[in-house]
């Protein structure tokens, strides 16, 4: 139990994620989290505005069930399988975040500077969440997948398009953190 309550090391977590991918393939499906966003748009009636959302979304219900399970899994892991402890970030990261003006670094999963009610009710705070979310939704559909679909499933099956997409993920991430963050914070 002690090992479960501690944060799990990368060499345990990575292989479990691969097993999840494999299980979904074994069940005749495929691992991809961002396609749920398209399914939810279709359920909401987006098919009236674009053929992109005219598909048999009922065939994707299984994936929404994965999402429901993931929410419950997050709840179980956070409230029953974790001891309150700061995230063991590298010293360099903590120094960099302090320089950007962050405090309480790593004491929760998400920084209060972005996700607390105080942040949400500031213009800058809400814009960060909205712009960030929008880019994720737009970019994943444009690229045809996210971390699960391209980085895990696509790279595991040695597909070139997924490698190009993952290079794009890093290009975007590096631009944001190294060029835009110093202006933003």
């Amino acid at each position: 139990m002690e090992y479960i309550l501690q944060p799990w090391p990368w060499y345990v977590s990575g292989p479990i994620i691969a097993i999840i991918m494999y299980l979904l393939l074994y069940f005749g499906r495929t691992f991809g989290m961002s396609s749920n966003l398209r399914t939810l748009c279709a359920i909401g009636g987006a098919g009236k505005h674009s053929d992109f959302f005219k598909f048999d979304w009922k065939s994707q219900r299984w994936n929404l069930v994965v999402v429901l399970g993931a929410i419950l899994g997050g709840f179980i892991a956070h409230y029953y399988l974790s001891e309150p402890a700061a995230i063991d970030l590298s010293d360099a990261t903590i120094i960099d975040l302090k320089t950007l003006g962050f405090t309480d670094i790593g004491n929760s999963l998400l920084p209060p500077e972005l996700f607390s009610w105080e942040a949400v009710f500031s213009i800058k705070g809400i814009l960060i969440l909205i712009v960030g979310g929008f880019l994720v939704g737009f970019g994943t559909r444009y690229a045809g997948g996210c971390t699960s679909g391209h980085a895990i499933t696509g790279l595991s099956s040695l597909q070139l398009p997924s490698l190009i997409a993952v290079i794009g993920f890093f290009l975007g991430g590096l631009i944001m953190i190294h060029l835009i963050f110093p202006i933003l914070f």
Binding site: M33, S34, N36, L37, V67, A70, I71, G74, L110, P111, L114, I128, L129, V131, G132, G133, F134, L135, V136, G137, F138, G139, T140, R141, Y142, A143, G144, C146, T147, S148, H150, P161, S162, I164, A165, V166, I167, G168, F169, F170, L171, G172, G173, L174, I175, M176, I177, I180
Partner: peptide
């Protein structure tokens, strides 16, 4: 893949969550 991937990467780094973690 490169353009869409870059757009996603910008958002991923900004809000720190890709679609799985969001849920």
């Amino acid at each position: 893949y490169i353009i869409g991937g870059t757009i996603f990467g910008l958002g991923w780094a900004l809000c720190g969550a890709c679609p799985g973690p969001m849920y």
